[in-house]
Design a protein around this nucleic acid. Structure first.
Lengths: 224, 224, 224, 224
DNA sequence: CATGAATGAGGCTTCATTCAT
DNA sequence: CATGAATGAAGCCTCATTCAT
């Protein structure tokens, strides 16, 4: 994963502008010229840096997913090392992923939306990153189910968990306009996490507990 | 809501082609010429019928939401008339909405995806249809919470329910490729509904019950 | 071979403009916009009619060669039917090919020049049309050699003949500026043919004859 | 004429790359960046060394023609000094020019092709170099005609001779693909020269002679 | 009703060149 | 000497739409 340090300032500005516009209007709805204008640079730079608009797309999507998977893996590892109760790892994970997406707020919606297309690139990303995500999450849920003794369908459980983690970033404007929530704000994460905890507790029939304690570690990768 | 009867055969073919392509490549990623080619009609017809590409978009989105809201309203009304236990109305609603989206399968993904954009049109649709959806759903959940005595945040409950109903149609390819589920198939609805029932039971702390009985009525509108 | 009759007037104008500019500045040196401007039509028409600049190129090259080969074949057939002395067929052929190129004057230089490139398209055209040309010409020369009893290398003979026929159209500006000849004029053909006759007579050691009589037939195809 | 000694190594590499690509794709079909990549140097160097792409073109064309004319002049002078039979000077000249072009093989095709364009630069080069070439060649042919007593048109004779000398280098790929000849090989020169000798003998009605003797001198300039 | 020719606008990319380093 | 970032211009193509038929 390329860190911001590696990026020239101009390149970084281009990326930021692209993400902002892609987030609002989607990939096909955003013109390279619009990105360049937003960034205040020459139009040719996009091709110069990323080998074209398509290259920019792939770069952004890969960056996001690399950070996403890295966050997921690290959180799982930390959570295990800290010997957190297996059912609590879910919350660690949710928290880390939500934080990661908050930090790449604009990029997240764009990526998640673009993943609903039928493209070659999407299929590839799905085959690589999302299969891995599934594997990692299911492992955790398997443990959680064993621990709690609850009999719930593993697949649908995982899917719903994933959806809860992703939805606020795929449809932030829905939450904003219809529910006056601000998925980008810090307190949203706390609020939303309490609810995920509720959900987990009830589903796994755990007793309600005191507020969540401090996390083992809060590793999160940075996209781009 | 325009019924199929009102549509000339050619117009209907155009709509079907448009929905198919929009579903795959999105609105901006689909050209009018591609639609015309897919439909085997002249390019000028799209402008002729819908007053342009944008008009086609608005037509499709409105069609979907009109049917969606109508389905929602009718199901709630039927469920009340049939004096179904309030907590069971949730399942009636989920079932009806899922059935509706299965029937407008291609259109659904397209509409849901397009709703994640930041456009004037989207804002309008959100203000009219989605506010109404929220209102209708929250009423039901309010009753359900009162009935069960559970103390859960109304908003997040509603949001999650909505997400469960919509997700399989916003991300069908994800379920297909990663989980080998077929959201368009009839048995997916049955399978998925069982899970929603699980979810509701645990959240509202109801006892597990025998399999769901026959629905009061299965009214569903047809889009377009 | 497409006849002019089949072409819409606009398309024909585009072709004429393209040929004119390609002739002067070459394919890569001519922009689609320049063609459109020259033709007084919209830029998009080139792509609309020929599927892009490349399509226009292929269309022109194929048109030329189809007419060229057709001219060659027909002349050979006519000359045989008229039972012309085998050594005189060469002159019939030269005359017909020169006339054909005079008639497609601009196109000829462009095509011949473009054939000196290293491209996929060129290789294909060479494999199809020029191999056929070689075959047809060598047959005639074989007969001529047998008739005259002269011992000359068949290949180089054919190559030189071809070069004599083509050169005035590949390098007309050289003949014009350096030798004040006008390869496009009718009398150039007569003048030049007398010389080719000289060449043939001396090479095949025939006696000088009276001026050439009337041809059997003067079939020539029209390019485009 | 610039000698290789004067060229820095980098500059030489750039020239070689440019010639190679120009030869294949023509001047307009070759980008400066492609040349730089081929040469493995920075893009800016072309502008730096030759004052732009156009400057590179002029440099190459001039280099070629200077060497070409120099070869022609020197060969004629040598041939006269050695008191070669006037009709044999033709072969000396053909041999020298063919050798020169073999040595500047890539450059030759490019230059000859480019000379079929209608450009200011081309007109200038034609006015200077090709007029001189014409003058020099016609002198020789004048003598040859006087010596042999043959009555042939001087201009067409010169033109044809020139064409024979140039053609293998303007259309090498034609000879390669259609006739399996290799104009760049040494034995092609020998083979082809025999044919030119044939041609000269028959045209000037000389008796066939023993194989050509050793040349007076083989001066040839080097382009670039 | 339906067609296809035609268009102006705009989209993405490549180009040759420059400039600070 | 040589580099690579950066640019304005231009190139080709696709787009959505219109209009006469």
């Amino acid at each position: 994963m390329a860190l911001k340090k590696d990026l020239s300032k101009t390149k970084e500005v281009v990326i930021r502008s692209a993400v902002k516009l892609f987030n609002m209007k989607g990939y096909d709805g955003t013109s390279v010229r619009a990105i360049a204008d937003e960034a205040g640079v020459n139009v040719a730079l996009v091709s110069y840096y990323f080998g074209g608009k398509k290259g920019l797309l792939e770069y952004l999507m890969s960056s996001f997913f690399e950070g996403y998977i890295e966050t997921l893996e690290n959180t799982i590892a930390c959570s295990q090392e800290a010997e957190r109760a297996v059912s609590e790892r879910l919350l660690d994970i949710a928290d880390a992923l939500i934080a990661y997406q908050q930090q790449s707020f604009y990029l997240s919606r764009f990526v998640h939306r673009e993943m609903t297309m039928d493209t070659m690139l999407i299929r590839e990303l799905m085959a690589s990153y999302l299969m891995k995500e599934k594997f990692l999450l299911e492992n955790v849920f398997q443990d959680a189910l064993e621990e709690s003794g609850a009999s719930l369908p593993l697949d649908l459980l995982t899917i719903q968990f994933r959806e809860m983690v992703i939805m606020p970033f795929l449809q932030p404007q829905y939450l904003r306009k219809v529910y006056f929530m601000q998925p980008s704000e810090v307190y949203f994460r706390r609020h939303y996490l309490r609810y995920i905890e509720h959900w987990a507790n009830r589903l796994f029939l755990r007793k309600e507990k005191e507020p969540l304690g401090p996390w083992c570690c809060r590793f999160q990768s940075r996209p781009k």
